[in-house]
């Protein structure tokens, strides 16, 4: 909400507003580099990444398959230690998973506990944090309601379709009330209709909760439709190819937004950047390969 005000009237920002634009970024990635050490030699997944996310921003990260998107997200989430560089969440350098951060994984089917009901899955992180029962029930109910799963709390995850499972994972993340939400190609494996629904769901949740979202995808259309900003990554070893502001209206709609001329323009631009990223980084990548 704060964000929209700022963007709508950039010239009439109050003193408080000015302070807000200098405030600590929700997420800050600085000179991040990640090299995997494998028996077959070193794999440089991320070469050098630097970018910030302001509180309340919705940013999409696009890049070709194997560009190191998952690697980056794992470093941000504190699941992987970077080779060099730092990640900070709300001003604190990440050394272990930050408390105010939630992740929706790429492999949604495997991220739910198969021995727990849908409800228990959503409730577990809260229970673990010691949130009292009444508050817990309320948060879980709201989250399940928000993703449209209020009718299946007793089912097990494996009794649900892929799209429903992903919604459970989203509900769990929402109920946890994070400040920063990371999503790793969350809709890669669901059908087109479900995907459109889930996209709108994520935008709605983002607006309602005012959280910061970093959304990874390799789908260009999706990134432009969802994001306020799109960061294009190059091919592996990865650098930021382009950081693009998406100046589409805040109210987005599957039919109208996607048929706006501006949407087509932006999509074309991102597409071009990705093509260029691929072409540009190939020689560089093969040089590093020769060095081994």
């Amino acid at each position: 909400m704060v964000l929209r005000l700022e963007r709508g009237r950039p010239l009439t920002i109050t003193q408080e507003g000015t302070a807000a634009s200098h405030q600590v970024p929700a997420l800050s990635v600085k000179d991040l580099k990640k090299v995997y050490q494998t028996p077959g030699g070193d794999v440089e997944a991320v070469r050098n990444l630097t970018f910030d996310l302001a509180p309340g921003e919705f940013v999409c990260l696009v890049g070709p398959s194997g560009a190191g998107k998952t690697t980056l997200l794992k470093c941000i989430a504190g699941l992987l230690a970077p080779t060099s560089g730092t990640v900070s969440v709300e001003g604190k350098v990440v050394t272990e998973p930050p408390k105010s951060l939630a992740v929706v994984f790429q492999e949604y089917g495997r991220s739910l506990f198969p021995w727990m009901s849908v409800r228990d899955n959503v409730e577990l992180p809260l229970k673990n944090q010691g949130v009292d029962k009444a508050k817990r029930d309320q948060l879980v109910d709201e989250a399940l309601e928000a993703v449209g799963l209020a009718h299946v709390p007793k089912s097990y995850p494996w009794q649900l379709s892929g799209g429903m499972q992903q919604r459970v994972a989203i509900a769990r993340a929402i109920a946890y009330q994070p400040q920063v939400l990371l999503m790793d190609e969350p809709f890669a494996a669901v059908d087109a209709q479900t995907r459109a629904d889930l996209e709108d769901l994520v935008r709605r949740v983002w607006k309602q909760l005012g959280i910061t979202v970093l959304f990874v995808t390799h789908d260009i259309d999706e990134s432009v439709y969802l994001g306020e900003r799109v960061i294009v990554l190059s091919n592996s070893p990865t650098v930021v190819q382009e950081d693009l502001k998406i100046d589409l209206p805040a109210e987005r709609d599957q039919l109208n937004t996607r048929s706006l001329p501006r949407f087509t323009e932006l999509r074309g631009h991102v597409y071009e950047q990705i093509q260029r990223a691929k072409a540009a980084s190939r020689p560089a990548a093969s040089v590093t390969a020769d060095n081994k």
Binding site: E96, A102, E107, S111, P125
Partner: peptide, 13 residues
């Protein structure tokens, strides 16, 4: 499962 293990870590279980 590695993904479940990561899930636990993210939610600080």
């Amino acid at each position: 499962d590695e993904v479940l293990s990561d899930t636990c870590r993210v939610y600080r279980i």
